[in-house]
C-alpha cells in the first residue's frame, strides 16, 4: 500500500511540475505587455521600461519561473501587477464567493438529483420515468449562460425579485449574500442536477439487477425498503465520483456564470486578469485550480485503493 501511495504521489508531483511549465509557458507567449497596458496610449517607452523594471518583468523567463514556483511552494503567489496586492489575498477574497457558490450549486444539484433519480429508477419504464428522463435530457442540453439570461429577464428585470447581478458582500448579512447567489447557483445547478439524476438512476438500476437485491426482495422487503437499505449504498460509488468531479468543475467552470451575474469570484478574477494582462494572477489562479483537481483525483484514487485492494496491483 505504501508503495502504491508513493508511486501515485510521485506521478502527482510530476503532473504538477508539468502543469506549472505548461501554464507558465502558455502565459509567457500571450501577446500583450502588462506595463504597456497599464500606462495606456500616451505612455513613453522609458516610462514603460521603468514600470517593467518595477514589476520585475525585466528578469529572464527562467528566473521568473523559478521565482514563481518557489514562491508558491511557500504559499506566496506573488503580487498582482495591476492591483499591487498579494495574489494570495485576492484569491482568498474571491474564494469567499466562488466556494459558497459552488457549494450551493452542488447542494441544489444533489437535492434535486437524488429524489428524482431514485424515483425514476424505482419506476423504471413508467410514464414518470420517461417524463423525468425527458426533463433531464433538456437540462443537459440547455446552455447554462442562456438559462441564466432568461432567469435574469424573468426574475430580475420583470419580477424584480432578485438583483440581476453583483454581490453586496457578506458584510451585508447572510440573507443578502445568499439572495445574490441564488440565481447563479440555480443556473449552475440545472445541468449538473440533470447529469447527476441520470447517473443516480442508472447506478441504481445496475444495483437493482444484482443478486443481493433479488435476495433482499425475496426476503420480503418492498422495493422501496430494498432500495433504501441496500441499493442506495451500492449506487453511491459512481454517484460520489460524479459529485467530486462536479465540484471541481463548478469551482473553475463558473467563469461564464460569474460574468453573466457579475459576481466578483475566481472566474471573473481570471477573466479580468487576462484582459488586463495581470499575468501573475492568471498563472497562480489557474495553477491553484489545476492543483485542486489533481489533488482531488489523487485522493479519490487512494480512497479507491483502500476500499478495493485489487486496484493497487494495477499501479
Amino acid at each position: 500500500m505504501t508503495r502504491y501511495i508513493l508511486t501515485r504521489l510521485s506521478s502527482l508531483l510530476i503532473s504538477l511540475v508539468i502543469a506549472s511549465i505548461v501554464i507558465f509557458g502558455l502565459i509567457e507567449i500571450i501577446p500583450g505587455d502588462p506595463a504597456a497596458f497599464m500606462l495606456g496610449i500616451n505612455a513613453q517607452e522609458d516610462t514603460i521600461d521603468a514600470l517593467r523594471a518595477e514589476l520585475g518583468l525585466d528578469a529572464s523567463p527562467i528566473a521568473r519561473y523559478f521565482a514563481w514556483v518557489s514562491g508558491m511552494v511557500t504559499g506566496d503567489f506573488g503580487t498582482s501587477y495591476t492591483y499591487r496586492t498579494p495574489v494570495t489575498e485576492m484569491i482568498a477574497e474571491r474564494l469567499w464567493i466562488s466556494l459558497p457558490l459552488a457549494l450551493i450549486a452542488l447542494a441544489l444539484s444533489t437535492l434535486i438529483a437524488f429524489p428524482v433519480g431514485i424515483l425514476a429508477a424505482s419506476k423504471r419504464g413508467s410514464i414518470t420515468d420517461t417524463v423525468i428522463m425527458g426533463f433531464t435530457q433538456l437540462g443537459v442540453a440547455i446552455p447554462n449562460f442562456w438559462f441564466a439570461m432568461l432567469m435574469v429577464l424573468v426574475f430580475a428585470i420583470n419580477l424584480r425579485w432578485f438583483s440581476a447581478g453583483g454581490f453586496p458582500g457578506w458584510d451585508d448579512g447572510l440573507f443578502a449574500g445568499l439572495k445574490a447567489l441564488t440565481l447563479p447557483a440555480i443556473s449552475l445547478a440545472l445541468p449538473q442536477a440533470s447529469i447527476l439524476a441520470r447517473v443516480m438512476r442508472s447506478a441504481l438500476i445496475d444495483t437493482l439487477d444484482e443478486d443481493f437485491m433479488r435476495t433482499a426482495r425475496a426476503k420480503g422487503l418492498t422495493q422501496r425498503q430494498a432500495i433504501r437499505r441496500h441499493a442506495l449504498r451500492n449506487a453511491m460509488i459512481p454517484v460520489l465520483t460524479i459529485i467530486g468531479l462536479q465540484f471541481s468543475f463548478l469551482l473553475a467552470g463558473a467563469i461564464i456564470i460569474e460574468n453573466v451575474f457579475f459576481l466578483p469570484g475566481l472566474g471573473r478574477l481570471i477573466f479580468q486578469a487576462i484582459s488586463q494582462r495581470d499575468l501573475i494572477v492568471v498563472e497562480s489562479v489557474v495553477m491553484l485550480l489545476v492543483f485542486a483537481v489533481i489533488v482531488v483525483n489523487f485522493a479519490v484514487d487512494i480512497a479507491y485503493a483502500l476500499v478495493d485492494p485489487r486496484l493497487r496491483r494495477k499501479a
Binding site: V152, A156, S163, A164, G165, G166, V260, F262
Partner: peptide
C-alpha cells in the same frame, strides 16, 4: 462608486434603483 461593466447588470441595477 460601484463597478458594473456588464450592460445587462447595469440595466437591472439602475432599474432596481441599486
Amino acid at each position: 462608486f460601484k463597478f458594473i461593466s456588464d450592460p445587462t447588470a447595469a440595466f437591472a441595477a439602475m432599474m432596481a434603483e441599486d
